[in-house]
Design a protein around this nucleic acid. Structure first.
Lengths: 191, 191
DNA sequence: ACAAAACCTGACCAAACGGTCTGATACCCT
DNA sequence: AGGGTATCAGACCGTTTGGTCAGGTTTTGT
């Protein structure tokens, strides 16, 4: 029986869940193992039994999301047509909707935690995605527009409502449609 | 003679400068006073002589930028016409260009440091600005578009090039014009 | 020139941190 | 039923942290 046994899996998931929320809200270095333990209703030792170190907790917490992002990347055609571009935009927005906390962590702490292996991987994936999408842009100005769109979309979804307090109560479907529209427009428009 | 005397002012400015860069790059809680001291070529005690605590350093570092933002806010007419809106957008972009590091700190750590008074003020200012601009939006969908634009603009300028590595070498003038264009478009477009 | 204020250093401290270790409890398989 | 293992809790440890303090040096005002 592996460490992923059925009975012990719940505590493990609770810990990851608590860590994910804490890392996204308070930041990695500002989050103590004790705090995670409290949130997961266990002890510090209990946490460190499942994950050898704090860094490994971060690894376990965001790796699934990174795998999902990598899957999107691997599905990209070598050269993006504008029809394929639409698909990528949709996939990216859906990815953000599904992994808000992980996205917030990478978006906000990707640079400062670059020395952590899993974060290095995350940064690479983000750079690859941005490069792939921006490669379809005809000139630097459109690249910048797209950069703003991608970053803004990620930020709004990841942080929830810091810059737009009134909009999060909207159903996700509407938000999704609007965000896809924004990104598409930013591409289509010529300056 | 006050503490702002001429001879001592340089060390003080060096410290603030080092703190600003460190807080923006590595985060407040991940930055040690010792690190700031090293970067400012002084000792930990030297730093803590000029600023009683780490929090007060943060305060001193970003307060000037917050004052500038507040000035922009106070200049807003009670109801934004579309011409006035353009002015606000320009002022905001210029503000971001002038205070990238401070913007990065607020943007990225505004939530997690909300308990620090100066950060609470920063969050309030940002919320006020967003509210003023979004109040000019005709419907929730445009609000979301504007939210994406504001956040994206701030993020791209603050973090430099995380999501658009190729564009920062551009001269600021071009970046400025493009960003103003993006924000204006996001407003003008109806979904 | 000289006293006072400003400035800086090194030693020091209590608290909090991530992580280890020992042992107790719960669970599983045969 | 019972041995083995997974799962935790509490005490503990070395390190690092923000911050204090006493003392020395430089600068300033007169």
């Amino acid at each position: 029986m592996t460490i992923e046994s059925r009975a012990g899996a719940r505590a493990r998931r609770d810990i990851i869940d608590a860590a994910l929320s804490a890392f996204a809200q308070d930041g990695f270095s500002a989050t103590s193992v004790q705090h995670i333990a409290d949130a997961a209703d266990t002890s510090k030792s209990g946490v460190l039994y499942h994950f050898d170190s704090k860094e490994r907790m971060l690894d376990a917490a965001i790796t699934p999301a990174l795998d999902a992002l990598e899957t999107i990347l691997n599905g990209l055609p070598p050269r993006l047509t504008s029809a394929a571009l639409e698909d990528v935009i949709v996939a990216f927005v859906d990815f953000l909707l599904a992994h808000r906390r992980e996205a917030a962590i990478v978006l906000i702490q990707g640079r400062s935690l670059a020395s952590v292996p899993v974060m290095s991987r995350a940064n690479q994936l983000v750079a690859d995605l941005a490069e792939a999408i921006e490669a379809a842009a005809p000139n630097p100005s459109v690249k910048l527009r797209v950069g703003v769109g991608l970053a803004g979309t990620a930020y709004v979804l990841a942080t929830g409502d810091a810059y737009a307090p009134d909009l999060t109560p909207q159903p996700d479907d509407e938000v999704r449609a609007t965000l896809i529209g924004v990104l598409s427009d930013l591409f289509a428009r010529e300056t």
